[in-house]
Design a protein around this nucleic acid. Structure first.
Lengths: 213, 213, 213, 213
DNA sequence: CATGAATGAGTTTTCATTCAT
DNA sequence: TATGAATGAAAACTCATTCAT
């Protein structure tokens, strides 16, 4: 049954960064960024405070590494998925929403935007990084789909920037809700139905008048 | 020109709580909740640190008082406005969005949801209070309009809870964006166009098939 | 008997900076600059750590204040003394050495150059400040006397810069010795005789050949 | 060109202690004792942190070994040089100053007194060791020369202890200056001219009245 | 009522030293 | 021998809160 090799020194070293990131994410989720103490993170990872600094030079660096490991690859996956797909724009939006919905269903992913929004004021560098690498690329992706849809006549001609933001709004809000209110809620609502409804209404509203379904 | 009476001691005293709230809000907007120092708030209010504690027992209490003074009355105003109005549900939604859009255009109002979000983990009591008194009542209001619209046949029959959330999502997101990303943005986008577009798309999607405008 | 008024709040506040400087100097003398903990200084002054920061923003600032309070006025006093004096250059050197000898007899003054020399590498700003405000002005003073003596024919013509440094070397060394070795010495030597001898030898060597005593 | 044999494991091993001392000295010169990190020393020596502890039990031990290797032999060399020399005392002082001047021209030697000074408070054992083995022996050497000169009638009869200290003062000061102020100086002054002048003035002052040059 | 000096717990970060490999 | 990952004791500095005046 014991499939994991004994944690030799070398093995642990290789795993440390990942373990620390896990611990940090859990701690950030539980307490928020500022309130998460390096000591908490260390304790959760089962190491001492000093050890963290062997791998990451600061708390902000941990957060950035977290975004790089957990969020950006998802953005890239979405980019790749859509680049490879010859699907119709409408279908692409469906896929994208499904993809984002699944991703944000993981509380550890959903927590990230909250952390950024909450701490943007205190850590502008962090905000800038996220704005550029995640928000920027995500919005560009959606605007691309919208533009193609409009050019092909499938979608009504609209302001792509505003429309792209409208597309993501419920997804983001659902993520924020999940990490902020759900924990204090008596009967937290699953985000699925809302997102499904969003897709229906949004696509319906987007479709060009004469276009067939 | 000088219409405000000279701030005599007596006058000032009467307004102290309000002045402190003003100062606190400005400070929270500028720095966020945790990073706002009591001394900053005191300085902005033109009093000493100790004075704050004569009126509010803690930083959290200030925040709660702020929500009570600045946000809840707006919710109540919206409730009253809609209760008194015999307008059609669609028009009511228009009014409501216009009302919320205007409110959140003020950075001092828009900052509040961000503050709640940011500190929900650290101050669950604060989050619970906001969830109940602002979010809960706000959503109830919208669900009421939706329900009436559906009952009258003006709107398609839909899950009112989910639909209400979809209605507010872009408004909330716009408020958060404004306080988190706009300050670091080169050319921050005004929220107006997005909200106008939202209304169009959303109402279009909501309208029952055969219903006339 | 009780001549000092009761230490009212106001009185203490006025005295705090000075008290802190006293405590800091004692601590620096005992442990050196880097090894002196803010907490040590606070404890010696009978206040808490935080209180120090109400008066000085950093450890370096304390040191600078110390130099400004205890050293620079002495430099200025020496400058004034010599500017006012119409004495012959030789006598002026005598006075100056006597003045510096007396000053460095106080271990709390003698400690300062040691602190600067010792920590110059770690705190270059501190070194620069001392170099400019104390060493620079001091050397300029001596060079001035030497120059006048040479111009009047009382002193042999020599490189004033080098000569000025030779004049201070034993004084400085005596100060350093006092704070570094004297504490570990069995029978520390008083600096007086060496300085007296220095004056004799130095002035003798300086005097122009034909000049009368 | 490559005259040093390739650093085979065996060869390197034999030299480890010496290599470590080199690295430590360079690091102490660059950063001072406290600020020198064991890791810096290790890196400069091309070994790992742990290795240092195989040869020296602590940072202080390294410093002591350094003094033993680099300073004490110089003291001994001076002792031997003068013991073997039948030169006149005046010439011996010339030789000694030249010797010390050359030694302290090397920043790696000049740094040592500063290090001792800086850390005398924190490491009294170190100070005691240096006081005894370097300062004590050095002063004894000079006093010996002076005594012989006075006995032979070449020098005026003076307090040998004080005179010996006066002899070294400019040399020590020049060493300290070099490591403390020269790095922050715009145009650092070379110590040569001052030391040459010192010799002239000092010997001139020392010479007995009637003694021929 | 108002002040603001004082407090001291709390947080990040550094680094000499240890020890399993 | 040699390594370098891990430790944990410091230490500077911050700030909500208290309380003597």
């Amino acid at each position: 049954m014991k499939t994991t090799p004994p944690p030799t020194r070398a093995r642990r070293k290789a795993d440390r960064p990942g373990e620390l990131l896990e611990a940090a994410l859990d701690t950030f989720v539980a307490k928020g960024f500022s309130a998460a103490r390096m000591e908490d993170i260390a304790a959760r990872a089962g190491v001492s405070k000093g050890t963290i600094y062997l791998y990451y030079p600061s708390k902000e660096a941990i957060f950035e590494a977290l975004v790089r490991r957990d969020i950006i690859p998802r953005v890239e996956a979405a980019e790749a998925m859509l680049a490879a797909s010859g699907a119709a724009p409408e279908l692409q939006l469906r896929h994208l929403l499904e993809f984002m919905g699944k991703a944000t269903a993981d509380p550890r992913v959903a927590a990230v935007p909250k952390l950024v929004l909450a701490e943007a004021g205190n850590f502008p560098e962090m905000a800038r990084f996220y704005r550029r690498e995640v928000v920027g690329r995500g919005l560009a992706l959606i605007e691309g789909i919208l533009r193609r849809g409009m050019e092909s006549g499938a979608f009504r001609p609209l302001d792509t920037r505003a429309t792209a933001r409208l597309f993501v709004a419920p997804i983001i809000l659902s993520a924020l809700w999940q990490t902020s209110f759900a924990p204090i809620e008596d009967a937290p609502e699953p985000p699925g139905p809302m997102l499904a409804l969003h897709l229906d209404l949004f696509l319906g509203a987007l479709r060009a008048e004469g276009a067939s379904r």
